[in-house]
């Protein structure tokens, strides 16, 4: 579904992505773990096209997307959520989801139809609002919504385009335990055919939802395996998990 081949990126002399390769099967849930500065978000930005890699290739369903712009990759079914909320602040929750759903359904450009009155768009918004538990807040202006709700909307926007591959950048960043709980439920409720790649800090979430885990350190893949293998792996534990728990 998503294949990354020998991806490299450097800024000047600094190598932030070193020869990263991995393959995501359709419907796979993959979590990328790694300490701060491991190059997780940089990798993400290369996948969606906001950064151009120095070398390597990215394939979606066997086709390279290297020449495609950010928006073209999104139209190929690659959708992302951001680590820092990146919403339409001036608009309501409903309008936010409507814009995303219309864009996902290729209905963002007509000068004859109103995307906000489109039955299919409205249905998608209704479903996504339910998925991210925002149904009661649809008419609230985004700027007056709580941080937690905005965090949910952040994921909701990515979901509303009905992607084939969902890339989530630390969805639980900055939220409390109850909200993390609801993200567990959200991730389990996602359709099984959706391929999901998550950057995550929260270990429990990672071990709970991941089919496989990729560990990144200094821009390099240092380990890849199932959650059980990751738990049992001494290298990972030594260089990474121990450090993690010491910090937590």
């Amino acid at each position: 579904m998503l294949e990354v081949r020998k991806l490299c990126k450097s800024f000047g002399g600094l190598q932030v992505t070193r020869n990263v390769s991995f393959v995501l099967e359709p419907g796979e849930r993959r979590v990328i773990l790694g300490p701060n500065g491991a190059g997780k978000t940089t990798l993400f930005n290369q996948l969606v096209g906001t950064l151009t890699p120095s070398s390597g290739d990215i394939l979606v369903q066997g086709r390279s997307v290297m020449g495609l712009s950010v928006s073209a990759r999104a139209r190929e079914g690659l959708s992302r959520s951001y680590q820092k909320n990146n919403l339409f602040e001036d608009l309501s929750v409903r309008e936010n989801l409507m814009l995303a759903a219309a864009a996902g359904q290729g209905k963002a450009r007509s000068i004859w139809r109103d995307s906000f009155r489109d039955a299919e768009v409205r249905e998608t918004v209704r479903e996504v609002a339910q998925q991210v538990a925002l149904t009661d807040m649809l008419d609230m202006p985004v700027r007056s919504a709580s941080y937690g709700s905005r965090r949910q909307l952040e994921v909701g926007l990515a979901l509303a385009t009905r992607p084939r591959i969902l890339l989530m950048d630390e969805p639980t960043s900055g939220v409390g335990p109850t909200m993390i709980e609801s993200f567990h439920r959200l991730l389990h409720s996602l359709p099984r055919e959706l391929t999901v790649l998550i950057i995550e800090h929260d270990m429990d979430l990672a071990f709970d939802v991941a089919d496989r885990i990729t560990v990144l350190n200094f821009g390099e893949v240092v380990f890849e395996g199932t959650p059980d293998e990751t738990r049992g792996n001494k290298v990972v534990r030594d260089i990474y998990l121990g450090d993690w728990q010491a910090n937590a």
Binding site: S71, A74, N86, F88, A103
Partner: peptide, 12 residues
């Protein structure tokens, strides 16, 4: 409101 996000949603 947010050009960057609109692009990420697939709009040129």
């Amino acid at each position: 409101t947010n050009e960057d996000r609109m692009r990420a949603l697939g709009v040129s």
